[in-house]
Design a protein around this nucleic acid. Structure first.
Lengths: 195, 195
DNA sequence: TGACACATGTAATAAGTTACATGATTAT
DNA sequence: ATAATCATGTAACTTATTACATGTGTCA
């Protein structure tokens, strides 16, 4: 139920279309929020029905019409209320990372395969980090108050990516050692002494 | 659609009940997977209908009956297939962290409030890290092949928590400085020079 | 000619959450 | 008594994803 807060948060900075909200989620704040475009369009319609936002259809000659949404007072009040409420009931984090799921089961597959995955995960995060840094240097040259939160969260993202790639390298080195010793994916029966 | 892989992964280590699967998700692999108990029960029923797992009802004298699920060959094949398929289509990560959402909008609220949030987030991750370390020392004393993946992912979790609390401290110090300078949450109108 | 970016959406399905229900035992 | 843990589930609901649809302009 906090998709709407994410949307309101974006709209509070400047009015936007469903399309541009989707784009922002996709290219900028993937590290803490994501949503599918159909979901965003539907939510925006619902929010307008509830009087939280208001749309204005802009006619364009070179492109199809677009609907620009802006936050209404009621929406701003709701957003502020959410921001201020003490998060007693632990907010649903719902981490669901299939990559880590895979790693947790790596004893079931080939060790070289596992290392290949780790290498690609590492590259993914390295390049993601690079992108964020580039985004920072473009959008966060001169900080104003509105951008301050984004400065903090983009720094979070950089550290997160750093942590990921460091961990990948660490895990790879650990796997390499185990491979040398032949502990993994080999003769698993020698360990069970009796059962 | 990868909830079933998470469940199959747990069952592949040892047969379990819906209840214990829920418990494992909750206390052990929260950092990369989570699911509600009703969802797990439903999924298990569906999976049994599809022949991926098989249940056995165990009568208990002191407790109500329980249904222990074990992976069938078909389920194991499916799991292995999923593990081996190259993840070309970027797997849906769907990060949804309301805490970071809040931080990204911290210019809308009081700066002391923001710092209070950061402090509690820091504590949360500190204690979560402690719990994982304790879990490690209990469950990962002598590593066998099956536990190897969990060793890697629990190390990930520890680093993740470390990163989080470090970032909280960094963000707090940055906010402190800004507070001194009075840049945030004060006289935002002085900046706009003309518009 | 086909793909891609712009821009918006419907319909169908899958996934996830909340509220509620049952019924025993153990701890406070 | 009351709450908590064990153990399983149904029903109702909300949220999220996929497939599909439409239509224009630009680029290779």
């Amino acid at each position: 139920m906090s998709l709407r807060y994410a949307i309101l948060g974006l709209l509070s900075k400047e009015p936007a279309t469903g399309y541009s909200v989707t784009r922002e989620f996709k290219y900028r704040i993937t590290h803490f929020w994501s949503a599918h475009h159909t979901q965003i369009y539907r939510e925006l319609v619902k929010m307008e029905a509830e009087g939280l936002v208001r749309s204005k259809t802009i006619r364009q000659s070179d492109f199809p019409d677009k609907k620009v949404y802006a936050v209404e007072e009621k929406g701003m009040t709701l957003l502020l209320h959410w921001l201020l409420q003490t998060p007693e009931k632990k907010e649903t984090l719902s981490m669901k990372d299939p990559r880590l799921l895979r790693v947790s089961l790596l004893h079931l597959i080939d060790i070289d395969q596992s290392m290949a995955y780790l290498a690609s995960y590492r590259d993914q995060h390295k390049s993601a980090q690079k992108e964020i840094k580039e985004w920072q240097s473009v959008h966060l040259e001169s900080l104003n108050n509105e951008q301050f939160g984004e400065y903090l969260t983009s720094e979070f993202a950089i550290r997160y990516m750093e942590m990921w790639s460091d961990w990948c390298e660490w895990a790879t080195s650990v796997l390499k050692e185990y491979k040398k010793k032949g502990d993994l994916n080999e003769t698993q029966h020698v360990e069970s002494d009796g059962s």
